[in-house]
Amino acid sequence: MKLPGIWLRHKVTIEPYLGVGPSGPQYGPATTFRAFVEEKTRMVRSPAGDEVVSSATFYARLDVTCPAKSRARLPSGRRTTVIAELRHDGGGLPTPDHVEVQLV
């Protein structure tokens, strides 16, 4: 089951991290999509296992991809960086399948 559209009240823009090139970090083209943004400070784990402070999290449908280190722009205009992307897929169960993206 998809995350219900009524929950997706905000627009988020992501520039996906592609890796490091000769002139530094490389990013893909910006994509804007609907999400639910929660600006709340909490401790999370990075993909490397380190404890870091997340200042915001957003939830979007499973077709959204936000690799760690991607750049994000929130509805408030604040620019931030992706810590981790967590996929929540019920595998056919009637759950709201979504991606959770933790931000610096």
Rank of each mutant, 00 (worst) to 15 (best):
R87V: 13
E85D: 05
V64E: 02
P4M: 06
P16E: 08
P29A: 12
V12P: 00
V44C: 08
L62D: 10
A35D: 00
F36Y: 13
T32R: 09
R79K: 10
G24K: 03
P94S: 05
V37G: 05
A35F: 06
T95R: 14
R73S: 08
R9G: 00
R71V: 07
E39R: 08
E39P: 01
V99H: 00
A68W: 15
S70W: 10
L3Y: 15
V53S: 13
L8A: 03
A56L: 14
L8F: 07
E15D: 09
G24V: 04
L3H: 04
E85V: 01
D97I: 03
E38V: 12
L86E: 05
G5T: 11
D63W: 15
Y27Q: 05
H88W: 03
L93A: 11
E38A: 09
P29S: 13
P75E: 07
A30F: 12
G24D: 04
S46D: 13
V37P: 06
V52H: 07
R9S: 05
S70M: 10
K69A: 13
L74M: 10
L74H: 10
R42W: 06
T95D: 00
I6H: 03
E100Y: 01
V104M: 08
I83C: 06
L8K: 06
G92T: 14
V52Q: 10
V52D: 14
D63N: 11
H98F: 05
R73H: 04
P96S: 09
G90V: 01
R42P: 00
A48R: 14
V99I: 13
G77M: 08
L8Q: 05
Q26R: 08
A68P: 02
S23G: 11
R73M: 10
P25I: 12
T41W: 01
V37F: 15
A56C: 09
T80F: 12
G19R: 15
H98I: 05
R45E: 08
V104Y: 15
P25H: 13
L74K: 03
E85W: 15
C66Y: 10
P75C: 04
K69F: 12
G77T: 04
R42M: 07
G28V: 14
P25Q: 15
A72Q: 08
P16N: 09
K11D: 02
H98W: 04
G21V: 04
H98M: 08
Q26M: 14
L62T: 10
S55T: 15
R42I: 03
P16V: 05
H10W: 00
A30Y: 11
P25E: 15
V104F: 10
R61M: 07
L3C: 03
L86D: 01
R87I: 15
A72I: 12
L74I: 07
E51G: 02
A56H: 05
G90W: 00
G5D: 14
R45K: 10
I83N: 04
H98E: 08
I6W: 01
A35K: 01
V20H: 04
G77A: 06
A60C: 11
A68I: 01
G77W: 15
G90L: 01
K11Q: 10
D50M: 11
R34K: 13
G49W: 15
Y27P: 04
R87Y: 01
R34Y: 14
R61K: 11
G21R: 00
D50P: 12
V20R: 13
A30C: 03
G91A: 07
I14L: 14
H98N: 07
T13W: 02
F36R: 09
P75F: 14
